[in-house]
Design a protein around this nucleic acid. Structure first.
Length: 515
RNA sequence: GGCUCCAUCGUUUAGCGGCCCAGGACGCUGCCCUCUCACGGCAGUAGCGCGGGUUCGAAUCCCGCUGGAGUCACCA
C-alpha cells in the first residue's frame, strides 16, 4: 500500500509542472488589491503602492480591493489597522470591495478567514501538493552540514517521500508536521508588468512551508490564496516581493490543479522608495510617516502627486497633475523600475503648487484645523475670525509650502495690540529713524476716511516716500514691524485693511511708545 | 555565498536606433518684477558607470565588468 502510494507520489512529482494559464483579463475585468499588514504607522512607500493599484483600477475601469493581512497577531495592532483606513480615507483613495465596504468575498481580514484556509489546505493536501515536514530548522541545518551542503540553501526536500514508518515514528515522538509545497523542478518564467520577462532557474528555492505545525497558515499560503479566491488579476506590489513570485506561481499552479483557482495573475513589481544613502526609506525615517506629512500640512493632492512621481511620470514636461489626470493616464507599463529617492524639497515644491491651485474658499477650510491646533483660533471660529480668515486666505495661499506654515504667518491678525509680540529679527533690521517713520505714518493715516488697501498705500507713500524721502523698502519696513511684529508678512496694506483703522493706529502708537 | 532586480544632471524624470554634442521639474546661483516674503518671468549650473560588440548610425540592442539593491524563515 505504502509502496503504491510512494510510486504514485513519485510520478505525481514528475508530472508537477506549471501548466496553469496566466490571466488574460483586461479593462473592467481587472481586479487589483492593496493588502497591507497592520504594523506601525502608514509608510509613504506603502501608500505609493496603494496609489498605483488604485490608479490602475481607475484607469482600466477595474476593481480595487482593500484587504488586511493580519495573520501575525504578535505584530499586528488595531491601532495600526485604524490608521491604514484613516490614511486612505484622508487621501481619497477609495476601494470597491473590502474593509468596511464589504463585497462578495467577505471577510476581508485574514484573521477572520481561518476556516477558508483550512478548506484550501485540505484540497491541496488531497491533491498531493502538500506534504508533511517534521524536521526543525536546527535539524535541517545539521543535515546540510553533514551532507556538506551550503547552509544558506536551506531545506533539502528530504521529506518529500517520507515512509509511513518514519512518519509514525515522528508522530510517536509527539512531533507535529509543518506542511510544505511540493515545488516543481522547473524553471519559472513570468512577464513582470514593469520589468519584463524574468526567469528563476529550477532549484532556486526549496519546498517551502505553507502551514505551521499545528495548522496555522502562513503568509506564504494565505496571500496567494486570498488573491486567488478574490479573483485578483494583477498583483502590483513592492520590489521586495519579486523573489517570492516564483514561489507564488508554484503555489498558484497547485491551487489551479486543486480546483481553488483558475488562473495565475500577472505581477508588477514597483521600485523601492529610498531614503538617505542607499537604503530603503525605513519606518525610522520621519519622512516615511504619512501622518507626519499630514500634520505638517501636506494636502492629499500634493502628497499623492509627489508619490506618483516616484517611478512614474505623466509626460516629458509636466509634473503637476490632479488625481483625475493620474487616473486617466496611469499605465503600469510606464513605471520606471529604478528605485526612487524620497526628496522632501521636491515634495514640498509639489505640495505648494497644489496649495496655490486651491480656491480661496477651499484653502480657508483646510487651514482652519491648523489654526485651531496652533491655538491661533480656539474652538469654533467667531464670525469676526472667519471674516479675517477669509480676507487673509488669498494673501497667504501663495506663500506657504505646507498648511502648517499658515498659523505663524497670520497670527498677528488675530491678536489684540496688547498681546502682539515683536520678533527680535524684525527689530534688528529696523532703520535708525524707525520711530520717526512710524510717527509720520500715524499722522498720515489718522485722518484717512477710506481705510482700504489702495488708500492706505497712497497715504503712506505720500507721507513716507515723497514726504520723508525714504526708499520704499525703508519706509514700509518699520510700519510692517509695528503692525505685525514680524519681518515677513503677507502684503502690508492688505493686512492693515483687515485689521482696520483703529487696530492699526493702536499698533503704530504702541510701537512708537515702546521705543 | 546562490538566485533575482537595478544603473541618464545633486534628486526625480523624458528618451523605447537617427528628431539628443540628451529635454522637463526640484534644488542651487544670478537678474527682472516688488512694501517684506512669496508668486511669476528670464538666464545659468549639472548627467547617459566602465569595456567590448551589433549597426551607416547607440543613452537606446547584445555581452562582460563594476557598482548598488532585494531575497534566500515554521515574519509579512
Amino acid at each position: 500500500m505504502s509502496c503504491t502510494t510512494q510510486s504514485l507520489r513519485g510520478s505525481l512529482k514528475k508530472m508537477t509542472f506549471i501548466t496553469a494559464p496566466t490571466t488574460t483579463a483586461t479593462g473592467s475585468d481587472i481586479r487589483v488589491r492593496f493588502c497591507p499588514s497592520p504594523t506601525g504607522t502608514p509608510h509613504v512607500g506603502l501608500i505609493r503602492t496603494a496609489l498605483f493599484n488604485w490608479a490602475y483600477a481607475r484607469r482600466t475601469g477595474g476593481k480595487f480591493i482593500f484587504r488586511i493581512e493580519d495573520t501575525d497577531a504578535s505584530r499586528d495592532s488595531e491601532e495600526s489597522y485604524g490608521q491604514l483606513v484613516e490614511g486612505l480615507r484622508w487621501l481619497g483613495i477609495d476601494w470597491d470591495e473590502g474593509i468596511d465596504t464589504g463585497g462578495p468575498n467577505e471577510p476581508y481580514r485574514q484573521s477572520e478567514r481561518g476556516e477558508i484556509y483550512q478548506e484550501v489546505i485540505e484540497k491541496l493536501k488531497s491533491s498531493g501538493h502538500l506534504y508533511e515536514s517534521f524536521l526543525t530548522g536546527e535539524e535541517i541545518e545539521q543535515r546540510n552540514i553533514a551532507n556538506s551542503r551550503a547552509v544558506q540553501l536551506g531545506y533539502d526536500n528530504s521529506e518529500r517521500d517520507l515512509s509511513e514508518e518514519d512518519r509514525q515514528s515522528y508522530l510517536s515522538e509527539g512531533r507535529k508536521p509543518a506542511l510544505r509545497l511540493r515545488v516543481p523542478d522547473q524553471d519559472i518564467t513570468f512577464v513582470d508588468l514593469v520589468r519584463g520577462e524574468i526567469t528563476f532557474p529550477a532549484g532556486s528555492f526549496p519546498d517551502f512551508v505553507l502551514v505551521r505545525p499545528g495548522g496555522a497558515p502562513l503568509y506564504t499560503l494565505v496571500n496567494p490564496v486570498d488573491d486567488a479566491l478574490m479573483g485578483i488579476t494583477h498583483v502590483l506590489r513592492g520590489e521586495d516581493l519579486l523573489s517570492s513570485t516564483p514561489r507564488q506561481i508554484a503555489l498558484y499552479n497547485a491551487l489551479v490543479e486543486a480546483g481553488v483557482a483558475t488562473f495565475i495573475p500577472r505581477f508588477g513589481h514597483l521600485p523601492f522608495v529610498m531614503g538617505e544613502g542607499n537604503k530603503k526609506l525605513s519606518k525610522r525615517n520621519p519622512e516615511s510617516n504619512l501622518f507626519l506629512h499630514r500634520d505638517r500640512g501636506f494636502i492629499p493632492e500634493g502628497l499623492l502627486n509627489y508619490l506618483a512621481l516616484l517611478g512614474w511620470s505623466i509626460s516629458a514636461d509636466r509634473d503637476i497633475f490632479s488625481l483625475d489626470e493620474l487616473c486617466e493616464n496611469f499605465e503600469i507599463e510606464n513605471v520606471n523600475p529604478n528605485p526612487a529617492r524620497f526628496d522632501q524639497k521636491k515634495a514640498d515644491a509639489i505640495n505648494s503648487a497644489h496649495i496655490r491651485l486651491l480656491t480661496d474658499e477651499d484653502f480657508m477650510g483646510r487651514i482652519l484645523p491648523y489654526l485651531q491646533s496652533a491655538g491661533v483660533i480656539q474652538g469654533e471660529p467667531t464670525a469676526k475670525q472667519l471674516e479675517i480668515l477669509s480676507a487673509a486666505a488669498p494673501l497667504t495661499k501663495e506663500r506657504v509650502i505646507v498648511l502648517g506654515d499658515v498659523p505663524a504667518m497670520v497670527e498677528f491678525l488675530f491678536v489684540d495690540v496688547a498681546d502682539l509680540k515683536i520678533d527680535e529679527d524684525a527689530l534688528k533690521q529696523l532703520p535708525e529713524n524707525a520711530v520717526e517713520i512710524v510717527a509720520a505714518a500715524t499722522a498720515s493715516l489718522q485722518n484717512l476716511e477710506d481705510f482700504t488697501t489702495d488708500a492706505i498705500h497712497q497715504a503712506l507713500s505720500d507721507a513716507l516716500v515723497d514726504g520723508l524721502g525714504e526708499k520704499p523698502r525703508n519706509a514700509f519696513g518699520p510700519v510692517r514691524t509695528a503692525i505685525s511684529g514680524r519681518r515677513v508678512t503677507p502684503p502690508l496694506f492688505e493686512c492693515m485693511e483687515i485689521l482696520g483703522k483703529e487696530q492699526s493706529l493702536a499698533r503704530l502708537e504702541a510701537f512708537a511708545q515702546s521705543r
